[in-house]
């Protein structure tokens, strides 16, 4: 099976280790991974800010970059939603582009969903030691209806998965929102952190690098002991036989 990795701009520039983890997990499962280097950003930043023209430009580029890929794997629920759902809205008035967007939408997969539903038997190592709680990233959950997949993968990897209260509540990131209304954003985040802490888990895992950056940023500021991981990192750690 062949898959093109859409790393997302956050992974590309801030969290390359997440990209490495994704590649390692995919390869272990026997997927032939490529990385079309012309990719930059899916345009979600602009789209959510209301900058439709700029978002469209970015989307057009992605239609080209991933034109021939059999599967496109994205380690981010919100970027995957952008490509699977919102591109269709962006191009709804242009039949030719809409057709291409539809094709890309069908070929695009969020990473955990791809592992469970396309790759199937992942034959993952059980090397992960520790307690993990999963934070449902909003777009993964509500645009793509992904919630069982990441939990199943974490369990397969040997993690003890504990549920936090309101795992499905937003962490308060919301892209532009987090800098436009930092006082509200951080108030929402506080509740998330308290819920994470209450589980007694060693780590919180999620499927979106926006949430990851947000939760990590506050954990680092507060000097919290827990770690915030991308699910792919937990799986890669399991393969390497490491604990949390």
């Amino acid at each position: 099976m062949r898959a093109a990795l859409c790393a997302t701009c956050l992974v590309d520039q801030f969290f390359p280790e997440v990209g490495e983890a994704v590649v390692a997990v995919l390869r272990r499962a026997g997927v032939e991974v490529s990385f079309p280097e012309e990719q930059t950003c899916c345009g979600q930043v602009a789209f959510n800010g209301g900058y439709e023209r700029e978002a469209r430009e970015a989307a057009l580029r992605f239609l080209d970059v991933f034109d021939g890929s059999e599967h496109v794997v994205v380690p981010s629920g919100s970027c995957a939603s952008m490509m699977k759902v919102f591109y269709l809205e962006l191009f709804e008035d242009d039949p030719a582009l809409l057709e291409r967007a539809r094709s890309l939408s069908e070929r695009t997969h969020e990473f955990t969903e791809f592992m469970v539903n396309v790759v199937g038997d992942t034959a993952a190592a059980k090397g992960f030691e520790g307690k993990v709680t999963y934070h449902d990233a909003c777009h993964s959950l509500r645009e793509l209806r992904i919630s069982a997949e990441p939990r199943a993968l974490l369990e397969q990897a040997g993690a003890e998965v504990v549920e936090m209260q309101d795992s499905d509540r937003c962490c308060g990131f919301g892209g532009l929102f987090s800098v436009k209304y930092p006082h509200i954003s951080t108030a929402i985040l506080e509740e998330k952190l308290a819920n994470i802490e209450a589980t007694g888990a060693d780590a919180v895992a999620t499927t979106d690098c926006g949430c990851l950056m947000h939760i990590r940023g506050a954990m680092s500021r507060k000097g919290m002991q827990q770690r915030a991981l991308h699910v792919a990192e937990a799986l890669a750690a399991a393969n390497a036989g490491e604990g949390a």
């Binding site: 992974v11 520039q13 801030f14 280097e37 800098v179 209304y181 985040l189």
Partner: peptide, 24 residues
Amino acid sequence: VLSGWSRGRDFPPLARKSFAQVWR
């Protein structure tokens, strides 16, 4: 615009090498 972030949250620095570089 971005300064609001540092209220209560650290910002991750840009990685030494981008993923694209690591890939190459």
